[in-house]
Design a protein around this nucleic acid. Structure first.
Length: 749
DNA sequence: AATCCGTCTATTTTT
DNA sequence: TAGACGGATT
């Protein structure tokens, strides 16, 4: 068929092989910029249009909503079908869909609420308080980590291995958190995964239904999957189905949040992948940039092995620059930005990347002073804003009044005379009666009881509004009735918050419109199918179509926190961490702060495999650049209010010398002491510290030294005098050491 | 109920 | 240095 031919046109042989592989499971090693998304979407189009599968037989999983949206849009552009007929979404989104459809079997109320990390932490704190456990014996954040990592490993509280009293306590708290969530109909992110995993593993008919249905399972960013997600996929992949996994082990940078690169090798072995397809042709960067990336990553031992190449020319060599201070590094970047602008690049074609968010300050300052428009990624997202969460808490209560997380949030905001005392009494009453806070309202008498009763009536009013009004009407009236509108209207800085609440109404309007579209139009096929599923597996339960718009909207708000960027649209230079740059590309890229201790980050060096992950991070950074790449570091940097003297990152020495261009003399890895007057970012106090640091032993803060065992380093602090004089020294490999000057064989360099 | 003050911490982040 | 948080104060 000619349409199919047209899809396949222009694919390189490896891409073509991946797209049209028709037997068994497939592992695609997709290098940066190798057209991975194109392969995924083209394969889906090929499967459907070539008659290999129907849209209903396809399940495609991504990590972010953005990636899912992109996939849906691109398929929509290729095929005349409604892509919503397919199950395409994030792991969490798909699990949500599954659990709503089969909430009975999953032992959840139909309108279960999803807790984001913030909500989860609040729930944990509340549980700790109820259990009477001291925050110091069990820091809430650590318990949260403990619970989430257990769940992500597929473990329930009872399955966690206990060694010692501390563990026992934590496991008990884990258990009571689980009970609390179950009682209140709350599901955290990890629970979405675990609960649907358990649902499928325990319910054989349901499992085989979905196994037979999903003939083709496609997974994006496979290197980022965690242990539970891998098991989930394995469970869903029945006999005769094909799993198509796309990933790049060299871009695995999320181990710290549970990603398990080993899944790639496990997949190859356990699914008996006969052929691993490597996509190595890069369509993004010029040759010298790719050579830099290839050489750098070749220093990693743990690799599946892959080398990027391009059919385009060599292009410019990446430029390396050594600055005396972070301030001067920033000024140099601004100057390069100017030159690039003169050469015709728009600010939005350029990005400045850094390892940690704290580094953005100096850069922002320099850009602001030079009047370069810029935009910083990161920070609060729309649905995470306090005012939005407050409004959502009321909406959640309208949907499920027994959601104590939302109750606790809403009950006294805006203030309505229900203080900590009253709340404690209510908590006790609820704990005694084993019921929700809302259900316990009646048990309190007196003035406090009256205030609570009034709040209870508010919830009931919202509930009835929810059953009569349209979603946008409900959102608007909730903002009014809750008193949030009045509260923010009376606040000095409340205007912006009011606007955000207005925006929430708009969001609900467009959400409702989209849902309506999906339910009608070509989505009829999926609706019919979903109904069939209902008839077979959830007899008596509400069908998917009956999940109320409010419930759907609340799930949407939890699962998609909204844009992560400040003001968009305008032509601005992009500032972001290397992590958030993954998946993006720019004509010009600046990678900053290439200093030992910062990049690679010192905290990573103590973790096994940490250095290799840092190196992959650098690899990701380099491969973001299309034409121009600038890599820089500073001898002195203001960090936590103190000037830190850094050594050039080892990563710079791992780049191919013939493919890069040093703008500053490339010395041995020992910077000269920095004259403070060259370091405008340093506080005035630094001057006196440094002047005072010159002592009779002849060492000075910022001084380069060499130690027979630890190698090259820089003095970062001096204390004591005479025979007791000590120096703290930042070594390249060995990290920070404190040495007695009288004893240590330090050589001045 | 709002505000102030001392303490603590500071890598990366999506769902 | 700066920001977030919790406890105490007004």
């Amino acid at each position: 068929m000619s349409t199919v031919q047209r899809f396949l046109e222009g694919l390189n042989p490896q891409q073509l092989a991946a797209v049209t592989e028709s037997t068994g499971h497939v592992l695609v090693l997709a290098g940066a910029g190798s057209g991975k998304t194109r392969v995924l979407t083209t394969r889906i189009a090929w499967l459907i249009h070539g008659g290999h599968a129907s849209a209903l037989q396809i399940l495609a999983v991504t990590f972010t909503n953005k990636a899912a949206r992109e996939m849906i849009d691109r398929i929509g552009a290729m095929l005349p079908i409604n892509p919503r007929a397919m199950w395409i979404g994030t792991f969490h989104g798909l699990c949500n869909r599954l659990l709503r459809l089969h909430h009975r079997d999953a032992q959840l109320p139909q309108g279960f609420q999803i807790l984001d990390s913030q909500d989860q932490l609040a729930a944990i704190k509340r549980m700790l308080k109820a259990a009477g456990v001291d925050d110091t014996r069990c820091p809430p954040r650590e318990l949260q980590m403990f619970i989430n990592s257990a769940k992500e490993a597929g473990l329930r509280a009872r399955e966690v291995e206990v060694n010692g009293g501390r563990d026992r306590l934590w496991v008990e708290l884990f258990e009571s958190y689980e009970r609390q969530c179950q009682r209140e109909g709350l599901v955290d992110f990890a629970e979405l995964l675990l609960r649907s995993y358990e649902l499928l593993s325990r319910n054989e008919p349901l499992r085989s239904h979905y196994q037979q249905r999903f003939r083709h399972i496609l997974v994006d960013e496979f290197q980022d999957t965690n242990v539970l997600q891998y098991r989930w996929l394995k469970l869903l992949a029945g006999p005769g189905s094909s799993v198509f996994a796309v990933g790049d082990d060299d871009q695995s940078i999320y181990r710290f949040r549970g990603a398990h690169v080993g899944n790639m090798a496990d997949f190859e072995r356990e699914f008996q992948v006969s052929q691993v397809i490597k996509l190595e042709q890069n369509y993004r960067s010029y040759g010298h940039i790719l050579e830099a990336a290839n050489r750098l990553i070749s220093h990693n031992a743990q690799r599946l092995g892959k080398n990027l190449w391009t059919a385009e020319g060599q292009g410019e060599r990446p430029v390396l620059f050594e600055a005396a201070s972070d301030g001067l590094e920033a000024s140099w970047i601004v100057e390069q930005v100017r030159q690039l602008s003169d050469a015709g690049l728009r600010p939005s074609d350029m990005a400045i990347l850094y390892r940690s968010n704290a580094q953005s300050r100096v850069l922002e300052h320099a850009l602001f002073t030079a009047a370069v428009p810029y935009r910083v990624y990161g920070g609060l997202r729309f649905f995470e804003r306090a005012e939005i969460k407050n409004a959502l808490a009321y909406l959640r209560l309208a949907s499920n009044p027994h959601d104590d997380v939302s109750f606790a949030r809403a009950v006294n905001f805006p203030a309505r005379g229900i203080g900590t005392r009253t709340l404690e009494q209510l908590q006790d009453a609820a704990a005694g009666a084993q019921c929700s806070l809302y259900a316990a309202i009646g048990s309190l008498a007196g003035r406090a009881g009256a205030s609570l009763a009034q709040f209870g009536r508010l919830i009931e009013a919202l509930q009835s509004a929810a059953s009569t009004q349209s979603l946008p009407e409900l959102v608007a009236s909730t903002i009014q009735q809750s008193g949030l509108a009045a509260h923010y209207a009376g606040e000095r800085e409340g205007q912006e918050r009011l606007e955000n609440l207005e925006e929430l109404v708009n969001a609900s309007t467009s959400f409702a419109a989209e849902q309506g579209y999906a339910a009608s139009a070509a989505g009829a096929a999926s609706a019919a199918e979903a109904d069939a599923e209902q008839a077979a597996f959830a007899a008596g339960a509400a069908s998917a179509a009956e999940v109320s718009p409010l419930t759907a909207f609340l799930a949407h708000a939890s699962l998609e926190a909204g844009d992560n960027q400040a003001g968009q649209g305008q032509d601005a230079l992009q500032l972001m961490t290397v992590h958030s740059a993954k998946g993006l590309e720019f004509d010009a890229v600046f990678i900053t702060g290439l200093e030992e201790g910062l990049f690679p980050h010192e905290n990573s060096l103590s973790e096994g495999g940490g250095l290799e992950e840092e190196r992959r991070l650098m690899y990701v950074a380099i491969t973001r650049a299309r034409k121009h790449l600038f890599v820089s570091f500073a001898q002195a940097r203001l960090l936590h209010g103190q000037t830190r003297y850094g050594i050039r990152s080892r990563f710079l020495d791992e780049l191919p010398p013939e493919s890069v261009r040093w703008l500053t003399p490339r010395r041995s890895r020992m910077p000269e002491p920095v004259p403070y007057w060259n370091a405008p970012a340093a506080p005035r106090g630094a001057m006196s510290t440094q002047a005072a640091a010159v002592a009779h032993h002849g060492f000075q803060v910022g001084q380069s030294v060499r130690h027979p065992k630890f190698g090259d380093g820089v003095v970062i602090r001096l204390q004591g005098a005479g025979g007791d004089a000590r120096a703290q020294i930042q070594f390249g490999q060995a990290g920070i050491k404190e040495l007695l000057l009288a004893v240590a064989k330090l050589e001045r360099a």
